[in-house]
Amino acid sequence: MTLPAPLAEIVDDFGAVGDSDRVTLLLEFSRELPELPEHLHEESMEPVPECQSPVFLSVDAADSDSVRLYLTAPPEAPTTRGFASILHQGLDGASAEEILAVPADFYHALGLDSAVSPLRLRGMAGMLARIKSQVRTQTGNGPGTPARST
């Protein structure tokens, strides 16, 4: 599986703990999602309707070598917020090419399938799909084409 180094490290961290500790680790991630910068507001961000909770994201791929991600999820939705934080920590600053290469189902490698409902896992897949869509749109890469070098 091709993952940017920070995301691969997160997957390794989840793989190093037992089933019960994976949920605890996910909750730790939920507390680490950074606040939005002042120039961004949820109204100007893309909603992620695949999530059960209100999640919004924005991608800045102006520099395709260092894509910036902004995600927000409510504190009362720790699972969803944890997924948003994993994607932020694992992909923020990665290149467009690295982000587009992340498998759509990478989240199975986190080992949360038995602890988190399939509906919630689809929410994480929805976040990743929307991030990739914004990266493709902003970098001029159609679906299935590698990111262009600059």
Rank of each mutant, 00 (worst) to 15 (best):
E28G: 10
P4D: 06
T145K: 14
G140F: 04
V116M: 05
F106Y: 11
E35L: 10
V11M: 05
T137D: 12
I99H: 00
L112M: 13
Q89R: 15
T139H: 01
L110G: 08
R130C: 03
L40W: 08
A5F: 09
L91R: 09
R68S: 12
I131F: 07
D21P: 00
P143I: 07
D63I: 01
V116S: 01
V55W: 04
E42G: 08
I131K: 08
Q138R: 03
H41M: 04
V55I: 15
L69Q: 08
P118Q: 08
F56Q: 13
D60P: 10
Q52R: 10
L36P: 07
I99W: 05
F83H: 01
C51Q: 07
E9S: 13
G18K: 09
F56T: 10
V55E: 09
Q138T: 02
S30M: 09
L128H: 06
L69A: 07
E76H: 10
T139E: 08
R81V: 13
V67R: 11
T2F: 13
V135C: 10
V11K: 03
E46R: 13
L27R: 11
P54H: 10
T79D: 03
P146L: 03
L112I: 13
M1W: 03
D12A: 15
L100E: 00
H108P: 01
E28C: 00
L40V: 06
G82E: 11
R148T: 09
R130F: 02
I10H: 01
V116P: 03
G93K: 14
S53G: 11
P74V: 00
E50I: 06
T145N: 11
P49G: 09
L87R: 01
Y107Q: 11
P34C: 13
P54W: 07
M45N: 12
T24Y: 02
L128M: 12
P78V: 06
L25S: 01
L27S: 02
A101H: 06
P6A: 07
P118L: 08
A73Q: 14
E42F: 05
L112D: 07
H41L: 06
E46D: 15
D12Y: 00
P54V: 05
A61P: 08
S64E: 15
T137W: 09
T80Q: 07
P146E: 13
Q89P: 12
G144T: 00
H108Y: 14
S149H: 07
S58V: 00
E38Q: 14
P143Y: 03
G123M: 04
F83A: 06
R22A: 03
A73W: 09
Q138I: 02
F56P: 11
E28T: 04
P37H: 08
E50V: 02
I86Q: 10
E9Y: 00
G123N: 06
L100Y: 00
T2Y: 12
V116G: 04
S30E: 09
L71C: 07
R22L: 11
E28Y: 01
G140Q: 12
D12K: 10
S117K: 00
T79W: 06
A61Q: 10
H39Y: 04
E97P: 02
E42W: 01
G126Y: 00
V135H: 09
P4M: 09
E38M: 01
T145W: 06
